[in-house]
Amino acid sequence: MKKIMSVCIALLLGVSMIGCTDKQEETKEVTISDSEVSQEVNVSVEEEKNNIEKYKKLIGLSKEEIIKAMGEEPNSVDEGGLEFSNASIRVWFGEDGKKVNQIFINNNDVDFNGAKVGEKIECFTNVFGKPVGEDTGSAYSNFDYEGLVLHVQYDPSTEKVFSVYLMEEWK
């Protein structure tokens, strides 16, 4: 009986030690992962939440910086722009051709502070307030977003938004 009791106690201690070791290793893995993430935050936007703030950070980047941040090889589009297929965005550069000043987004997964592409223009008005410029004939509304212009295009018959431009200024 003493032998059985000793074996059970030894087995219980062994199992409980294995659990402690696993927890320590998990903590190490999380710590390593957290430090890796913090190193990549400044460089890449791939893992960030898919919201307007993610795209706001791209305004002002150079061609090299945005390619590095997006983590994919872009395709050239009209007027010197670049298309990033994985992110479903296009960017254009200022008159000097050096810094991103305009981002085209037609991805309905992007969260514009609660409004999304595919919803009615009213959703954007509810979130961003009264437009600073609009043309119902051309079916667009411009909203001020932290010093940038949110140019929202919609279908005039359904009032559903089909694309959004985030840009430095509206000309």
Results as ranks from 00 to 15, higher is better:
residue 138 S to A: 10
residue 28 K to Q: 07
residue 125 T to H: 07
residue 29 E to Y: 11
residue 75 N to I: 09
residue 99 K to H: 10
residue 18 I to F: 07
residue 88 S to I: 15
residue 107 N to F: 04
residue 148 L to R: 08
residue 58 L to M: 15
residue 95 E to M: 04
residue 124 F to P: 01
residue 11 L to G: 00
residue 83 E to Q: 12
residue 84 F to V: 09
residue 36 E to W: 06
residue 59 I to S: 07
residue 128 F to T: 00
residue 22 D to V: 15
residue 143 F to S: 12
residue 141 S to F: 05
residue 149 V to P: 00
residue 81 G to A: 01
residue 149 V to L: 01
residue 168 E to D: 11
residue 23 K to S: 10
residue 6 S to M: 13
residue 91 V to N: 08
residue 104 F to K: 13
residue 74 P to F: 02
residue 135 D to S: 08
residue 32 I to T: 14
residue 158 T to M: 07
residue 141 S to M: 10
residue 170 W to Q: 13
residue 123 C to G: 13
residue 61 L to F: 14
residue 104 F to T: 02
residue 96 D to H: 08
residue 91 V to K: 00
residue 143 F to R: 08
residue 165 Y to G: 08
residue 18 I to M: 12
residue 49 K to G: 13
residue 1 M to H: 06
residue 58 L to C: 00
residue 108 N to A: 14
residue 17 M to Y: 05
residue 164 V to H: 04
residue 63 K to D: 10
residue 2 K to H: 06
residue 149 V to Q: 02
residue 109 D to V: 02
residue 53 E to Y: 04
residue 38 S to G: 00
residue 87 A to D: 07
residue 20 C to F: 15
residue 42 N to R: 09
residue 168 E to V: 11
residue 34 D to Y: 08
residue 113 N to V: 02
residue 64 E to D: 07
residue 92 W to P: 04
residue 82 L to Q: 04
residue 161 V to D: 03
residue 10 A to V: 06
residue 166 L to Y: 01
residue 120 K to P: 05
residue 126 N to E: 09
residue 20 C to R: 02
residue 52 I to W: 01
residue 1 M to P: 10
residue 32 I to W: 03
residue 23 K to R: 12
